[in-house]
Design a protein around this nucleic acid. Sequence first.
DNA 1: CTTGACCTTAGTGTGTACTCTAAGCTTTAT
DNA 2: ATAAAGCTTAGAGTACACACTAAGGTCAAG
Lengths: 136, 136
Amino acid sequence: MKIGEFASQLGVSTDTLRYYEKHKLLMPSRRTSAGYRDYCHSELKQMRFILRAKHVGFSLAEIKELLQIKFHKQQHSCNEVKELTIQKRDLIAQRIDELTRFHQSLTILADTCCGGKEPANNCSILSTLEDLDGLN
Amino acid sequence: MKIGEFASQLGVSTDTLRYYEKHKLLMPSRRTSAGYRDYCHSELKQMRFILRAKHVGFSLAEIKELLQIKFHKQQHSCNEVKELTIQKRDLIAQRIDELTRFHQSLTILADTCCGGKEPANNCSILSTLEDLDGLN
DNA sequence: CTTGACCTTAGTGTGTACTCTAAGCTTTAT
DNA sequence: ATAAAGCTTAGAGTACACACTAAGGTCAAG
Ligand SMILES: [Zn+2]
Ligand SMILES: [Zn+2]
Ligand SMILES: [Zn+2]
Ligand SMILES: [Zn+2]
């Protein structure tokens, strides 16, 4: 299968596939005599693995690690896979906490502002950012 | 005040201050005869505004908009400021939702894996990413 | 036999917020 | 007088995940 059809079956761009190849996430094993990439069924499966891993939040660098483990399952333990998963989850939890703090501060700011059409001379949002430390 | 002292009073790096100047967030009004930046009290206040805005989650581009409004309060309404704040908050809410989905998926994955020391041949995390669509 | 769709590579651009480097001037302290 | 510390600039590098471009080769249909 050439790159165009392969890409459209997966709903990704050909650029993405070439990018993944350059970064060693998915290397088609064969080329045609003209030098065209020739993808096969197992590469389809691998690309689905990559997309599912992305869908649950793994970065490409992390997916590369997961693929290494998948290729050499004997050399790696369940524990290792679980650790990767949990570390990623905890990192995401931290980011959620940070964003939640932002969300709360912004809500407080927005709630105190009248939102009217008059000039912003006395806007409570601006004055809070200027002077006070009424946030958290 | 020269850049080094100014920076340490605010807890930022001199690089950061030069970066903000290049991007028109904070332009010291004077230079010494030797060409050194000379910061004054009002620039200290402005930098504090910037840092507070960052602290509640605004990006530098958004802070630049807020500063424009702050400098020309007559030309802008309370409504405008409130809109910026609410739009930012809603964008953050979207991002939180996405991360929360990641978090849930990763928790499901982690919970099904035994996490033991045996080889990862039958690791449920890997097999879920390979075959099944047991996530969301 | 030519048109158009598809493929190739290498390289550049995007957005965010800095951080670091090199090469050279100024100020301060000894 | 000199050495250390601090200042200047322009420009490159970092992370992430691609998107886009140019210049050219290949393949199937009419
Ligand atoms: Zn108002
Ligand atoms: Zn207001
Ligand atoms: Zn296990
Ligand atoms: Zn497992």
